[in-house]
Amino acid sequence: MKLSPVAVLSFLVLGCSHSASFDQEVWLQNSGVEDTRNPRAYMVQDVIKNHLRAGMTRQQVVQKLGAPYKEAATYLLPPTMALPDSLRGPDSVTLSEDQQKQLDARSNRFFRTYGQQVKLLEYPVGWSIIDPRFLTVALTPDGRVLRSWVEEH
Rank of each mutant, 00 (worst) to 15 (best):
P68G: 04
V61L: 03
L65E: 01
Q99L: 08
S92P: 13
V47P: 14
L65G: 01
L77R: 09
V137A: 11
G89W: 11
K70Y: 13
N50F: 11
Q100A: 15
Y69A: 08
Q99E: 15
V6H: 06
R88H: 11
L77D: 10
Q45K: 07
P68E: 04
Q99P: 05
V150P: 04
L95Y: 01
V125I: 09
S148V: 01
W27E: 06
V8R: 13
L28K: 12
E151Q: 09
M81I: 05
S86I: 04
M56S: 10
P68S: 07
I130A: 15
S19I: 04
V145N: 05
F111W: 05
V13H: 07
P39D: 03
E25A: 14
W27T: 03
P79D: 09
L14I: 02
E152G: 05
P5M: 00
V33D: 06
F22T: 00
W127Q: 03
N50V: 00
M56R: 01
G89M: 11
G115F: 00
H153Y: 14
T74N: 10
L3I: 03
Q24K: 15
F110Y: 15
K64N: 12
D131C: 09
I129A: 11
D46K: 03
V137D: 08
F11M: 12
L146D: 06
T74P: 00
F11Y: 08
S96F: 07
L3H: 02
Q60N: 04
I130R: 14
G115V: 00
F134V: 01
G66P: 05
S4A: 06
R37M: 13
F134W: 13
Q24V: 05
P5A: 08
P90E: 14
V47E: 09
K101A: 15
G32R: 05
L76I: 03
Q99R: 13
G55H: 06
L28R: 10
Q117D: 05
P5I: 00
Q59C: 05
R147E: 12
V33E: 15
G32A: 11
D35Q: 13
H153G: 12
P132L: 09
K70P: 00
T57C: 06
F134P: 00
D91L: 09
S128V: 01
D131R: 12
F111D: 03
F22Q: 00
H18F: 09
Q59Y: 05
A138I: 02
E25L: 09
A54H: 05
G32C: 06
E97V: 07
V26E: 14
R112M: 14
D91G: 08
V62E: 15
Q60H: 02
K64A: 13
F22G: 04
G115E: 03
D91S: 10
K64C: 11
L14R: 07
H18R: 13
T80H: 13
P78M: 10
G143W: 00
P141Q: 06
S4L: 07
R133M: 12
L77S: 11
P90D: 11
R53P: 02
R53M: 12
